[in-house]
């Protein structure tokens, strides 16, 4: 997902009996669906895990602007260009909502930026793949944003107030992203044979990385179990992945595209699609820094930060000058 394999720092789940009175009343509030708000007491592991999860999510939004930004200057029409600009601007906005939510947990924006720019922080594996043709912009909106929505909709109900509120804002905006992506794919899939090939090629390249977004099976993960107990993770990775496959396959069929998985077939007994093995080796390579674009993404990010430095400094100087003037006037 946008936050993949978030660690809790815990090795096993505490039973109610082992919890301190504070921990127990905290868990009882979560069980009763009462939101946890900033400055209220919370276990240190909850706070740290949330910072990790929310900041990873924020970093993904920020880095996620790059693969799409690649096509802003080359969008096929002025309308498509305006739409793509609006979408990329939304991603920046989503990153900002999430950074603010993370900051309510006591981490500073500068620390978060430092973690991203130094390469220490993780972001979603999906953004380390290149966008080779215009059809990739369609595939990202349709598949990548589609997969993100699967995860973000349930997170609107998560236990931490500021995170839940950020997710509500994001979900409102995200459905435009998915629909505009499908709209691009639909146009191409009904276009010339060459355009159809482009659409199919984009689906071929983005399908498996999109399934990887949900992360490896976490059926036996202590971290996931703990996060679910805290209600900062609502569904298991496999559950969301299955839901995504079930939803997406008919959409591909509708526009005459073929999902690149020979093992894909409807299982009437389960009421779900069966699908093939995911190449987890590739996933681990990509999240550990060896994907097709990891270095480029980080370099672009650092350059943008460095090249914006003079703007930030000018804004600071202007604010200081104005404040000094206001003070002189008051004196």
């Amino acid at each position: 997902m946008y936050a993949q394999m978030v660690k809790t720092g815990l090795e096993r789940i505490q039973s109610k009996e082992e919890m301190s009175p504070e921990e127990r009343s905290f868990q009882e509030r979560i069980d009763a669906d009462i939101k946890i708000e900033p400055k209220e007491w919370m276990p240190e592991a909850y706070r740290k895990t949330l910072i990790r999860q929310i900041s990873q999510h924020a970093h993904s939004e920020i880095i996620g602007m790059q693969p799409e930004g690649n096509w802003i200057t080359r969008a096929p029409t002025l309308e498509r260009k305006a739409i793509l600009l609006a979408k990329v601007q939304d991603e920046a906005g989503h990153g900002l909502y999430l950074y603010c939510a993370a900051e309510t947990l006591g981490v500073s924006r500068d620390e978060l930026m430092e973690q991203l720019n130094s390469g220490k922080a993780k972001y979603s594996s999906i953004f380390n793949y290149p966008t080779l043709t215009w059809a990739d912009i369609g595939a990202i909106g349709w598949l990548v944003d589609g997969a993100a929505i699967m995860n973000q909709v349930p997170l609107q109900r998560c236990s931490y107030g500021p995170y839940s509120r950020a997710m509500i804002r994001i979900c409102k905006e995200e459905s435009f992203h998915q629909r505009q992506g499908y709209d691009i794919m639909m146009k191409l899939a009904r276009g010339t044979p060459e355009q159809q090939r482009m659409a199919q090629d984009a689906l071929n390249r983005w399908w498996w990385p999109s399934l990887m977004m949900f992360g490896p099976s976490d059926a036996d993960s202590v971290h996931s179990a703990q996060s679910m107990m805290w209600k900062i993770k609502i569904n298991s990775n496999d559950e969301l992945r299955q839901k995504f496959v079930d939803q997406t396959v008919p959409q591909a069929e509708y526009i005459g595209l073929t999902v690149p998985d020979p093992d894909l077939k409807w299982n009437a007994e389960r009421g779900h699609y069966d699908f093939g093995e995911i190449n987890w080796d590739e996933f681990y390579q990509v999240i550990s820094g060896n994907g097709p674009c990891n270095r480029q993404r980080l370099r672009t990010r650092v350059n943008a930060y460095e090249e914006g430095r003079w703007v930030r400094e000018a804004a600071d100087a202007y604010a200081a000058k104005k404040a000094a003037r206001a003070q002189a006037k008051a004196a």
Partner: peptide, 11 residues
Amino acid sequence: VGSLHAPDAEM
């Protein structure tokens, strides 16, 4: 609705 960082009120 939320918060943000800025050098002054105008920004």
